[in-house]
Design a protein around this nucleic acid. Structure first.
Lengths: 250, 250
DNA sequence: CAGGCTTAACAAACACTGTTCGTCAAGCAG
DNA sequence: CTGCTTGACGAACAGTGTTTGTTAAGCCTG
């Protein structure tokens, strides 16, 4: 029996962790992760930066909580959605979409964020589906790792320009082409400007390297990964055979 | 004559871009990417922070140059190394090893860095090998994308603790288990501490999720990706068939 | 040689950043 | 009433990236 929590309602409105997360998420959507400072969050809540430390230990922890909050509404596909593979593709796709909808929040997951409760919920489901697919425990564990990398990388890639650039007061119409465009556009320009004699393959692929529908590309990459998982021998022999293509030259 | 100090030394002049990159790389190796500030780089070079802006437009550009510098010494496997697949696995493995050897420098590539000359050189070779393997242009382009995500994510994962934590003066012997260990160790602890009834699969996989040899894991993941690439139909029909497993519910 | 021009180097400053410390107001336990 | 906890917050600290203006040196032109 939990003792009735004294809802202390002092002078101010007890801003609460949820309000902090919501405000931070809004700022992430608008300005991008790096531009979100504790002072801006506090300002949006009409308080001082030190007040946030009641609910959060670090800026890192705040961003990790926001990252987890971003996937809170992802629902796992139920049994009627299809077989395990269809369900897994659906699940992963939903996670990517949820993350990509909040600017570059996925970059937090790529670096140093431990999975939060919602992330763990989705990870559990993904692992369960992989086991249903017949993967053994080792493949399952490493597949979870690989899928995590795919999810965060792809969400970040689909998130669009990570730096909306606060738009200086006078945006010169004939701006420097290397600084004003989208990241994808700059990458495209880089490939198209390559000298043909030194980079024949990349020049030939240049139109395709950055083009195409993002969702179709993401779905294709996910299909590649799952096909690759299914191509692994379901039961690797007891001894390691890692000398076939080990990337350790030393 | 206001100043006849010893500072104006001809030998002091011309610190050079290479010296800046070398100093930055050393600091990245020692402190990690985020802790590298322009002031620290300048201090290592015995100069002021503004001097760096002669060679570099941004901090971003500096880090991008360092990232490219990190793969400068990667040699592409020659024709005697084996077939295209063996050569590709060797090439990618070398890139991952080179990046992982410089702390969390790979995080720069995951975010916002355009490929530099050496990155382009290696990308060209990877694309060439993929074409040799029989992949069509679309698959080749998207495979380059996928391999890039794999390379940076895996290099970052293999780089070890991204925050060496400057070690406070009084490291309490009974330290908080959530703050003092390696990231991998904390992740491992997170999985092992999960309630069994809610996360049965993750709890069962917990020992394997974070364990194992990093190089073997990386090689396995790369094998999965290439197997998946080979499993794709070599010639997708002219029209898109992206409705089979598209992750866009809308 | 003088004069101009370019370049590298820097000091100082600006507008911020994350984080900590000390304090203050409110509610509750004794 | 006193204590004590909890949340809120002003002020400050030690940094941060970047800009600006000012030097000193080298180099080309005349």
């Amino acid at each position: 029996m939990p003792q009735a929590r004294s809802r202390s309602r002092p002078s101010k409105s007890m801003l609460g962790l949820d309000a902090v997360l919501a405000a931070t998420m809004a700022l992430v959507d608008e300005l991008g992760c790096e531009a979100v400072s504790l002072r801006r969050v506090a300002q949006a809540l009409e308080t001082g930066p030190a007040s946030l430390y009641v609910y959060v230990r670090d800026r890192q922890e705040l961003m990790a909580l926001v990252l987890d909050h971003a996937v809170a509404d992802v629902v796992v596909p139920d049994e009627g959605a299809g077989d395990w593979r269809t369900r897994l593709e659906l699940l992963v796709g939903r996670i990517v979409t949820a993350l990509a909808g909040h600017n570059d929040i996925a970059s937090v997951g790529l670096r140093d964020a431990l999975p939060g409760p919602h992330g763990l919920r989705l990870t559990e489901e993904a692992a369960r589906l992989l086991q249903t697919g017949g993967l053994d425990d080792d493949a399952c564990s490493w597949a979870i790792d690989l899928l995590g990398q795919y999810i965060y990388s792809t969400a970040l890639e689909n998130a669009g320009d990570p730096q909306p650039r606060p738009a200086p007061a006078e945006p010169s119409p004939r701006a420097d082409p290397t600084g004003s465009q989208t990241f994808t556009a700059r990458l495209d320009a880089t490939f198209r400007a390559l000298p043909v004699e030194r980079y024949p393959t990349l020049r030939a692929l240049a139109p395709r390297l950055t083009g195409g529908d993002q969702d179709a590309r993401a779905a294709w990459k996910l299909r590649v990964i799952i096909d690759g998982l299914l191509a692994q021998p379901p039961h690797p022999p007891t001894s390691h055979q890692d000398d076939t293509a080990a990337p350790t030259p030393k």
